[in-house]
C-alpha cells in the first residue's frame, strides 16, 4: 500500500517538474525565436494584442509587460551582433540607421535582467528627437562602455553579457515597412582580448 502511494506521488511530482521545466524551456526557446525576424531584430505583431496566443502573452509578460499593441507602437528586440554572437560589454559596436518613417522612435539598452544597466552614464537610450543623420543620410551611435568620440552613445557599462537593444517605433506612418534595410544595423567593431 505504502509503495503504491509513493509511486503515485512520484508520478505526480515527476509530471509537475516535467511540465514546469518544459514550459520554462518553451518560453526560453520562444524568446530567442520570437515572431518575425528582420535581420538581427525580432518582433511580434501580437504584442499586447487581445488576440495574442498564450505563449506570446507569456513571453511578452516576462520581457515587456505593459507593452502597447501594434496599433500604437512596434517593438523590435536585438540580442545578437552581425556575427551572431550574444551582445557583451566586452565588445564595442556601431549602430547605424536611416530616419524611420514614424512619428517617433528610440533605441534603449537593457541588461540581461531586462532593466537598465547599472551605470550612471545617462546614456541608456537614443531617440528621434536627439539624433540627426549625417551627410550620407545615416545616423551612427556607439554601443560601448565608453563614449570616445561618438556623437551618439548607448552605454553598455555594467550591462555584462547577453544585454539587448529594444527599438520602439511609435505611431508608425501608414507606409512604414519593417525590413532589414529600413531598421538600424548593429556591427561589432572590436572586443577586449582581440588582437
Amino acid at each position: 500500500m505504502l509503495r503504491r502511494v509513493a509511486a503515485w506521488t512520484a508520478a505526480i511530482l515527476a509530471g509537475l517538474v516535467l511540465g514546469g521545466a518544459s514550459a520554462w524551456a518553451a518560453l526560453e526557446i520562444g524568446r530567442g525565436n520570437f515572431g518575425e525576424r528582420y535581420g538581427a531584430w525580432s518582433h511580434s505583431r501580437a504584442t499586447g494584442s487581445t488576440a495574442a496566443g498564450p505563449y506570446t502573452r507569456a513571453i511578452i509578460a516576462r520581457d515587456g509587460l505593459l507593452a502597447l499593441s501594434a496599433r500604437e507602437a512596434l517593438y523590435f528586440n536585438l540580442t545578437q551582433d552581425d556575427q551572431g554572437a550574444p551582445l557583451s560589454e566586452n565588445c564595442s559596436y556601431e549602430l547605424t540607421g536611416r530616419p524611420l518613417n514614424t512619428r517617433w522612435w528610440s533605441v534603449t539598452l537593457y541588461a540581461d535582467d531586462s532593466f537598465l544597466a547599472q551605470n550612471e552614464d545617462h546614456a541608456a537610450s537614443i531617440d528621434a528627437s536627439h539624433v540627426s543623420p549625417g551627410p550620407d543620410g545615416r545616423w551612427r551611435a556607439r554601443v560601448s562602455t565608453v563614449r570616445g568620440d561618438a556623437a551618439y552613445w548607448l552605454s553598455s557599462r555594467n550591462a555584462r553579457r547577453d544585454f539587448s537593444l529594444t527599438l520602439r517605433i511609435y505611431n508608425p506612418h501608414r507606409d512604414f515597412q519593417a525590413s532589414e534595410e529600413t531598421l538600424p544595423t548593429l556591427t561589432r567593431l572590436s572586443c577586449l582580448g582581440e588582437s
Binding site: 509511486a7 503515485w8 512520484a10 508520478a11 505526480i12 515527476a14 509530471g15 509537475l16 516535467l18 511540465g19 514546469g20 518544459s22 514550459a23 520554462w24 518553451a26 518560453l27 498564450p54 505563449y55 502573452r57 507569456a58 511578452i60 509578460a61 516576462r62 509587460l65
Partner: peptide
C-alpha cells in the same frame, strides 16, 4: 504511473504558460 506523469506534465505545462502573464 508513466501515463499519469505525462498527463500531469501536460496540465502543468499549460497551467504554467497561462499563469505567467497573470502572475506578472
Amino acid at each position: 504511473y508513466v501515463w499519469t506523469a505525462i498527463i500531469v506534465a501536460l496540465l502543468a505545462h499549460f497551467a504554467f504558460i497561462h499563469a505567467v502573464p497573470r502572475v506578472m
